[in-house]
Write a protein that binds this DNA or RNA. Structure first.
Lengths: 212, 212
DNA sequence: TGTACATCAGTGAACGCGCGTTCACTGATGTAC
DNA sequence: TGTACATCAGTGAACGCGCGTTCACTGATGTAC
């Protein structure tokens, strides 16, 4: 209802010597606008309830407009997931900037869990079946591999010999913990309430002691 | 294809003096038939591509028939997920039947991963967002809690003091590993190819050593 | 053993719905001269 | 600075589609007598 109101107050044609048009014919940066709208819808309703038309509506644009920027709904979703992996990768890059290799890994796990908790539905999308075939989305695949690279590198730096095992263990732990947390699986459990990222770190510590 | 063949061999309707009717009017056990059809469709296409009409088709029945057994599509899916948790719970019950508490936990982890790998799409459904609100499906919730109970009990039996932590760590590890395995996330990684359940056990061992 | 009848478990036509996608179009913008 | 024109980025009507669900119906089954 306020969308139409907002539109009414503007002449739109001939912006020249008039006020700033609230709704220009051209969006300006619709690609990004759509991605942001998609993230908003995603957070509200989840990936399976997300439709192209919803996203277009949210971006304040007709439902045909997105096709000038994305070939299909799946393409849009892949782009959203890609942004998610970029965010995750950036968080990991920051987490890794610490000298102690053990601390590095613990912080990577923390960052992983924090990312999942910050945008649960996006996290689900990133790893969900909707985009299971990442080969069809090379840019998405690259962003995902970048994130995974941080985990592996940190693990190898800590333990050259068992690096791969350590990486898989830590990654699985962080991944599983993230999923279970956002699913609320621990809610009925007899656990002292604690900050999830602290929990991630505490559980992560269990993984190191196995070194021979 | 063999379903119709199998059905052919049974008379059912007025077996009186005629040939065997290939398609009796009544299915006999449609509820179970629908669940099995749903599992087949699920395995082939995944949960988001699964439709009630598909399932009915697969079960060899009109698309209105399921409503005599399930109130809605969601109800059907919940029932499928419930069966999944029952299977998982049974596998855990078996895994747990071993005296050594440490071995017990390792075997629970193995069972968890095996269950996920046996029916990946069902696993996704069980933990996916489609049935996120388990409160609306009490039977599903109970089956799920039964499985989780095995993990917790095994962990507490091994370490009364840190049982909850151990349970959460092991459960997260198994859950994450399962997810990543069925997503094929490790495929491009420099890991020696190994049996996933063996991997589960190996990683699980890392978790114990942290005891003070 | 036979008959009447209530109940159960199917059928298949119909409903409205919102979706993804296409298309001819038009308004806005940028560039060449 | 002005004009012509190609190109870009929107609009909104239209398409066909398959979906979940409902409903009046009918065939099959079981039970009471």
């Amino acid at each position: 209802m306020n969308a139409s109101t907002a539109r009414t107050k503007t002449p739109t044609t001939r912006p020249r010597a008039s006020k700033a048009p609230a709704r220009p014919y051209h969006h300006g940066n619709l690609r990004v606008g759509l991605l942001e709208a998609a993230e908003a819808v995603l957070a509200e309703r989840g990936a399976q309830a997300l439709t192209l038309r919803d996203v277009a509506r949210r971006a304040g644009v007709s439902h045909g407009a997105p096709y000038h920027h994305f070939a299909s709904l799946t393409d849009l979703l892949a782009a959203v997931a890609q942004r998610g992996f970029e965010t995750l990768g950036d968080a990991m890059a920051e987490a890794v900037a610490v000298p102690d290799t053990r601390e590095r890994l613990l912080r990577v796990a923390q960052a992983y869990v924090a990312c999942a908790r910050a945008q649960p539905e996006r996290f689900r999308l990133m790893f969900g079946p909707l985009l299971a075939s990442k080969d069809q989305h090379p840019a998405l695949k690259m962003s995902a591999e970048r994130s995974f690279g941080f985990v592996l590198a940190a693990a190898v730096a800590h333990d050259k010999k068992h690096g791969a095992d350590l990486a898989v263990a830590g990654w699985s732990l962080a991944h599983g913990l993230s999923h279970l947390l956002i699913d609320g699986a621990f809610e009925g459990l007899p656990m002292k309430q604690q900050n999830p990222e602290t929990l991630a770190r505490k559980l992560g510590e269990r993984i190191f002691a196995a070194e021979p």
